[in-house]
Nucleic acid binder design. Structure first.
Lengths: 246, 246
DNA sequence: ATACAGTTTTTTGTATACAGTATTCAAGTA
DNA sequence: TACTTGAATACTGTATACAAAAAACTGTAT
């Protein structure tokens, strides 16, 4: 074996050579952020020419970005193929949450069966961090940590397809859940439920884990209902039908 | 109200005006068929220029088709972005079946809760037809009927996102399950399991329905394992790495 | 004012050209 | 033979042009 073979092996293995993202992927990332943070509120029209100019790219990669966002349920197309920011009804959100519950329930079962102790510890640690940082953290960071907790569970299930589908449902539910997460009243119930999830996982009790995760999301349906009604009566009137704000 | 208003209202409502599909959607449909029926065996390279010429379209809509097929898990891209027919390992198939099981389990629960009696009858009827036609039908029609049965259950769950995600997982599992379905030995177990699914749904017993559906798919993992090993030892040597057959 | 028809403007679908990468192949070297 | 190198080839990413479809707008008649 020559010593250059070693070099090649090293280059292949160690660096996670993330091939540079395409313009479409980059655009999707920027747009995703803007949609989630409501720079583009639900219902906003997303004309290709205007957006591509704004992002300094041509329509070809922009269209790729739109398709990526459509996969995540953040963009939808009218019957005449005009793209807009998705504006799911409460019913649709509830339906998506139900699927998310089934996915996380499965993940919980698999974690009980297959996860290493290190992975369990990591999940438990995230929960601990959430409790500690809860009083001081701003709503966005707190919510991101919450999402990371759920993602860690699915990650430990060691099922790439499940992880990807979970990511998609998370994306399309992100906004509604973020709004809901800001309600003080929900914080304490959330804490209790997270604890029961962690307890079930550490005990490797499949049924308890699955049930705790699904109940947690059943609860989310109710919270979102309340939170959204509350917000729509609030002082700031969101633009639900207009065009992209420049 | 003028009488022309009536005409407009009628045109809007009654025809399910399926907007004409784009070239990309049409191409995806053709390619999907060819992949599922193994005209393009797993691993086959799918270069854009060659395929677009073969289909008589330009690369732009062809690329859209590839993305559609990637969503369904029928096409995957190498690390250097070259497309090929997906060639899932047995492990990946098992992982996908697990997710499918969770999705159908959820569907079963929802059917018990929400489906109309008419929808339940439709499902029971499909099962009846399967039993009746089983002896005479060719493997492909029999399998299509089987898939229709499962789809009818998810349809009756009245959750569009669930239906779409279920469709995607079905697509990526289609080939393996079709191969498995041809084994005589599996026919009888399948019949029994289908019956227990129908019984649970008719009784609107959520837990029984969910469990029957999930067990059915757990069983599929084992069957696919056996069937694939059997086939790979068979007389016809499939092309697993070559280029598109012309 | 409302509804309608015809026209203009906007927007999307598709083809094509070209640049940048990846792959293949052939010749040369140890 | 096995390995490297460099040129030739094939393939993908992106920009752009043009056609077809949809939406917005205009003036007119009711």
């Amino acid at each position: 074996m020559s010593d250059t073979t070693n070099i090649k092996a090293l280059l292949d293995s160690d660096t996670t050579l993330a091939r540079r993202p395409s313009l479409g992927e980059e655009a999707a990332e920027k747009l995703r952020e803007m949609i989630l943070l409501e720079k583009f509120p639900p219902g906003t029209a997303l004309p290709e020419t205007e957006l591509s100019k704004a992002l300094g790219i041509s329509r070809t990669p922009l269209r790729e970005a739109m398709r990526l966002l459509e996969i995540d349920g953040l963009v939808e197309h009218s019957d005449t193929r005009r793209a807009r920011v998705a504006a799911p009804s409460l019913e649709e959100l509830a339906q998506n949450l139900m699927v998310l519950g089934a996915l996380e329930g499965l993940a919980g079962e698999q974690v009980c069966l297959n996860a290493t102790q290190a992975q369990l510890d990591l999940i438990a640690n995230l929960n601990k961090r959430m409790i500690e940082e809860a009083p001081s953290a701003d709503p966005l960071s707190a919510f991101r940590l919450d999402m990371e907790f759920h993602r860690a569970i699915v990650l430990a299930a060691a099922n790439p397809s499940l992880l990807e589908t979970h990511r998609q449902y998370n994306a399309r539910l992100w906004r509604a859940r973020f709004i809901s997460s800001k309600r003080r009243a929900h914080q304490e119930t959330k804490r209790v439920m997270h604890q029961s999830i962690v307890d079930a996982l550490l005990a490797r009790d499949q049924n308890a884990a699955s049930n705790a995760l699904r109940r947690h999301l059943d609860n989310a349906v109710r919270n979102i209902d309340v939170a959204m009604k509350e917000q729509s009566q609030g002082p700031i009137d969101n633009n639900f039908t207009g065009r992209a704000v420049k």
